[in-house]
Amino acid sequence: MAYNKVVETIPLEKREELSDKLINNLLVSKNENKMPAGLANTILYHWQQGLLTGDAGLAAIIEASVLLEPDKTMEILEGKLQLMDTVKKVKEVSTKAGK
């Protein structure tokens, strides 16, 4: 649920590109054992429904990406997409989750 707040910081026009980059990040990740099954199923459901750029779908992808590849996720957000507010929010959410 916390990642829904992260999604609020992402402009609509950047969602598709972000979703695409993060999915690539997940599919090539070697840390697949860090993926919680419930989160994987949420992503698959939203992919099946064509909703991976929607609020819930994107929130699930970001959460998974942070869990599996935190550094690469930050690189994607900070790179060409320049989602600096999102970076701030992700750090806030993941720090809270870590406590």
Partner: peptide, 13 residues
């Protein structure tokens, strides 16, 4: 050979 969610992602695709 990969986690089920990767194979199923590709299957949906």
């Amino acid at each position: 050979r990969e986690a089920y969610w990767k194979t199923i992602y590709y299957a949906i695709q």
